[in-house]
């Protein structure tokens, strides 16, 4: 039995928090993405050969989208749950008739919603710089939703684990961003020689970038099936960890 009213209250409250800072939340990812497009798309991309018959600017759109999605989903969700822990407002959540389901749907749902809004804004921004089109819009949407939800869950775990603001930013900055950069945002695996070609395949984010690229271009280094299965497995793992956290009260209840 899920308390839908409680879930909705959390969801709305989180979105309201997002709307209060909507300018800051959107402007920085949009600016960053624009810079990438200008540098890699227009400036350098003009001198690059097309990748697999696709203009380089269009080739990097899915990668840049993934880059933003991963870091924003993670940090939004982690701040969402870390802030009440930090301010003490968490008491209300703990004393309320809400369990794992309501908390997750509320917090993670809101974080994922923000990511989707952000994704839309970034894709709009991209149209200013490059011509691209989405080969499989339905799969693209599904994939973006799945990735947003999974990494919001990861962020939620981070927000519960972290004991300070530095730790909160550590994982997105030190792990996710490098892995995304090295995961084929700016290149196809064909452009690499051994041993890098093999090394890259151990980077889980390589599969996510490739998956999203497939939905845009209709072809990529790995199949959409592999990418989807991996994302769903990751989602399940995060949910399992969170269920454990709630059952044990770890870091939430004293």
């Amino acid at each position: 039995m899920i308390g839908w009213r409680s879930t909705y209250a959390i969801y709305r409250n989180e979105l309201a928090r997002f709307m209060r800072t909507v300018f800051g939340s959107l402007v920085s990812p949009v600016l960053t993405t624009s810079l990438y497009f200008i540098v890699f798309g227009a400036a350098i991309g003009g001198r690059m050969d097309a990748v697999g018959g696709v203009d380089y600017g269009a080739f990097i759109v899915p990668g840049l989208l993934m880059l933003t999605l991963l870091s924003e989903s993670t940090s939004n969700a982690s701040f969402g749950i870390y802030m009440p822990r930090f301010t003490g407002a968490i008491y209300e959540l703990l004393s309320a008739p809400v369990g794992v389901a309501e908390t997750l749907l509320g917090f993670v749902g809101a974080a994922a919603t923000k990511s989707l809004i952000l994704a839309a804004v970034i894709l709009l921004t991209a149209t200013l710089f490059v011509d691209y089109h989405i080969a499989h819009p339905f799969y693209a949407l599904m994939f973006v939703i799945l990735v947003s939800a999974s990494f919001s869950l990861l962020g939620f775990i981070l927000g519960i684990w972290a004991e300070g603001f530095e730790k909160l930013q550590m994982v997105p900055m030190l792990i996710l961003t490098p892995l995304t950069f090295l995961g084929g945002t700016f290149y196809s695996i064909d452009m690499l020689s051994e041993p890098w070609r093999t090394v890259v395949q151990f980077n889980p984010i390589f599969y996510l970038v490739s998956g999203l690229r497939w939905t845009f271009l209709g072809e990529a280094d790995v199949s959409i099936g592999t990418a989807l299965s991996l994302t769903i497995a990751f989602l399940a793992l995060c949910i399992a960890i969170i269920a454990w956290i709630f059952r044990s009260g770890w870091r939430l209840r004293s």
């Binding site: 928090r17 009440p84 003490g88 407002a89 968490i90 008491y91």
Partner: peptide, 14 residues
């Protein structure tokens, strides 16, 4: 059940 805690804890910007 309602609880008014000893320590203040809010979202201050709300």
């Amino acid at each position: 059940i309602g609880l008014v805690p000893q320590e203040m804890g809010f979202d201050m910007f709300e």
